[in-house]
């Protein structure tokens, strides 16, 4: 790409990029997730042994990332719907994006202990 021609949008473009990336991530997770859930048709041991992976500290961090992706995609998706169907939607799209980011931060802070607590206890003892 020639230097200096990269299009740099503002909030609207970056929220679109993030919406796209999170959507793809969630879709790939869901594919694997239906496969791991299908192990309940193999045997209780096969299912429990695989779900044990979900309980390891490293995967707990990935689960926190999944929660981050789902929360952003869900909240920003509602913003997209508001922009499309609410008459003043486009006028307030920027304010709505910062509302999304604010809500996302609050919910991520709330999810930290439930999702990561057991991993912290396992890595640092007690």
């Amino acid at each position: 790409m020639p230097a200096g021609t990269l299009y740099r949008g503002r909030e609207g473009m970056w929220s679109w990029v993030a919406h796209r990336v999170t959507g793809v991530l969630i879709f790939f997770f869901l594919f694997v997730h239906v496969l791991d859930t299908a192990l309940v048709r193999v045997s209780p041991e096969a299912y429990d042994d695989t779900i044990a992976v979900y309980k390891t500290p490293l995967v707990a961090v990935m689960e926190y990332g999944l929660v981050a992706a789902v929360l952003f995609h869900a909240l920003n998706g509602l913003r997209v719907v508001a922009v499309d169907f609410w008459a003043s939607g486009t006028r307030y799209q920027k304010q709505m994006l910062w509302t999304v980011v604010g809500l996302w931060l609050v919910l991520m802070a709330g999810a930290a202990y439930p999702v990561l607590g057991h991993a912290v206890r396992e890595v640092f003892g007690s």
């Binding site: 309940v40 209780p44 299912y47 779900i51 979900y54 309980k55 999810a111 439930p114 057991h118």
Partner: peptide, 13 residues
């Protein structure tokens, strides 16, 4: 992930 002990309680049962 949150209620009832989070992911730790997930099992076949």
């Amino acid at each position: 992930l949150v209620l009832d002990g989070g992911v730790s309680k997930v099992s076949f049962a």
